[in-house]
């Protein structure tokens, strides 16, 4: 259905997308994940035909974008991160204009506008000026415009940004419904956002595809390490030194200080075979006059941990911290 082959985009000297290849089947929701600056929006803009790739090909239903751009664009619905709307137009005027752009016949225009307004619950505001609508409604109008012409591929760049929780749930439900009829490609930098609607994940980091597959297959592939979350009460420097000595040569230690508490959280990463809990416990117990373990928990890396790990070094790497769910020691 959608085939992307060796797609690259270079802005001057910056390689924004580097040799990206993947396929997406029809009636599939594909999530494009990555930290800010990973190249998600650039990728989507190339897929939508807004930007021409520096190299590589985009093929939809057997048609190459480079050879037949109009035919390919006719099969694509695209909602950028900021919905492209004319604030002085009414919702109906805007949707009619998009119908004209997409080649919907004037006879079918009214029916098509009604259909997308119905899908996005816009009927009540169809006569209102877009500039006076709330952000949530503007996002819906942009979404409705992307659905005009019944596209085969729907590209949604961070579609739920700025929506309230109720609207997020509605949009997610709609995406799931739409994925029964077409290929839906959604980008986000939040794994939780994507994981609940997409069976197929693509993870980008610095323009490179670092993972491609289902959430389960990605998790299995990267579960080659164990995590140990430890919380220690006492002097932070002493605790850090003690745990560093206990894990030297067997794992890596990351520290997260609690500013308002005398406790410090540690996360020890080691190979899947290594069990450092005994070594860590004994090392702290040896300093029991100054240090106390308040929590010690061995963890299996979650998909979130794996996402953090494989996108480490991205433009805005979130702080990695020990996750909850551990019992007190």
């Amino acid at each position: 259905m959608l085939q992307v082959t060796h797609l690259s985009k270079v802005y001057h000297t910056l390689r924004s997308v580097n040799d990206l290849s993947f396929t997406a089947e029809s009636q599939e929701a594909v999530g494009l994940l990555g930290p800010n600056g990973a190249g998600k929006s650039t990728t989507m803009r190339m897929l939508a035909g807004y930007l021409a790739p520096t190299s590589g090909e985009v093929e939809l239903c057997g048609l190459r974008m480079a050879d037949r751009p109009r035919d390919v664009k006719r099969m694509i619905g695209y909602l950028p991160e900021l919905p492209p709307l004319y604030p002085e137009s009414t919702v109906t005027e805007h949707l009619r204009f998009v119908c004209a752009l997409k080649g919907v016949s004037s006879r079918d225009t009214a029916r098509e506008c009604e259909r997308v307004c119905g899908l996005l619950n816009l009927s009540a505001v169809s006569g209102r000026v877009i500039g006076r609508l709330s952000k949530g409604y503007r996002q819906r109008v942009g979404f409705a415009a992307a659905l005009i012409g019944q596209p085969r591929l729907l590209i949604l760049d961070e579609p739920t940004v700025g929506l309230d929780p109720q609207q997020v749930v509605e949009i997610r439900r709609l995406i799931l419904d739409l994925a029964q009829q077409m290929t839906v490609l959604i980008s986000s930098h939040m794994l939780s956002e994507i994981a609940c609607v997409c069976a197929h994940l693509l993870i980008l980091n610095r323009g490179v595809l670092v993972a491609d597959g289902s959430a389960q297959s990605i998790a299995e592939k990267h579960r080659d390490r164990s995590l140990l979350a430890v919380t220690v009460r006492g002097d932070r420097l002493l605790a850090t030194e003690t745990l560093r000595q206990a894990t030297t040569g067997q794992g890596t230690l990351s520290v997260q200080e609690r500013p308002t508490s005398d406790e410090t959280d540690f996360l020890v990463q080691a190979s899947a075979q290594a069990d450092l809990s005994a070594a860590v416990f004994q090392a702290v117990a040896a300093r029991r006059d100054a240090l106390t373990i308040t929590s010690l928990c061995a963890k299996t890396p979650s998909l979130e941990d794996i996402f953090m790990e494989i996108t480490r070094g991205g433009a805005s790497e979130p702080a990695q911290a020990a996750q909850g769910g551990c019992g007190d020691a």
């Binding site: 803009r45 939508a48 035909g49 807004y50 751009p69 109009r70 035919d71 664009k73 006719r74 694509i76 695209y78 950028p80 900021l82 492209p84 709307l85 004319y86 604030p87 998009v98 752009l101 997409k102 080649g103 415009a145």
Partner: peptide, 14 residues
């Protein structure tokens, strides 16, 4: 400025 050029340039028009 309003990013509406994205609508025009991704539409099936020349």
């Amino acid at each position: 400025k309003q990013k509406t050029d994205e609508l025009l340039l991704t539409a099936p028009v020349t």
